Simulated assay, not measured.
Amino acid sequence: MRTIRLLLALLLVSSILVGQTKEFSKDYFLQKSKKQKTTARILLGGGTAMAVGGFAKFDSSWDSGSASTTDIAGIIGTVGFLTGLASIPYFISAGKNKRTAMSITFDYQPIYLSTDNLVAAKAHPTLSLKIKL
């Protein structure tokens, strides 16, 4: 009897968990795109500054022959270059999210109902999503 109650409770909880869905709205995708674009710009700007500064110091310290300064400047320049490259996926994701947000529309669509030899049209709010293949 105890196992039947436990199984029934698990069945009820699992049906509730499966039934919950997260709604994605146009604002959600636009906000996500904006955050990703901001992150990408910060990575690109910071990476470019680090790369230019690091490689400029690397070039000037290469002539003087200071090994420790040359190593540190080279590492900073390389990390800056890689940081700039890391911004590319963020720009791509931001563009995809913005296109997704632009394809979501909120509209009123007519639904035709038949009642006693009459056809009536009622407008119901709809949320449509264009999927380009």
Rank of each mutant, 00 (worst) to 15 (best):
M1E: 09
R2E: 12
A9Q: 01
L11G: 11
L12G: 05
I16V: 15
I16C: 06
G19A: 10
Q20M: 03
T21H: 07
E23A: 08
Y28M: 13
F29V: 08
L30R: 04
S33Q: 05
T39F: 04
I42K: 15
I42T: 08
L44N: 09
G45L: 09
G45W: 00
M50F: 13
A51G: 03
A51V: 00
F58C: 07
S60V: 15
D63K: 11
S64I: 15
G65M: 07
T69W: 01
T69S: 14
G74L: 11
I76R: 00
G77L: 10
V79K: 10
G80V: 09
T83P: 02
G84K: 09
I88Y: 10
I88E: 10
F91P: 04
I92F: 11
S93V: 04
A94H: 06
G95I: 00
G95D: 08
K96N: 10
K96T: 03
N97Q: 11
K98N: 15
K98E: 15
S103W: 06
S103P: 05
T105M: 09
D107V: 11
D107N: 09
Y108W: 06
P110V: 04
S114C: 02
T115Q: 14
N117F: 10
L118N: 13
A120C: 03
A123F: 15
T126K: 15
S128I: 04
I131W: 03
I131F: 03
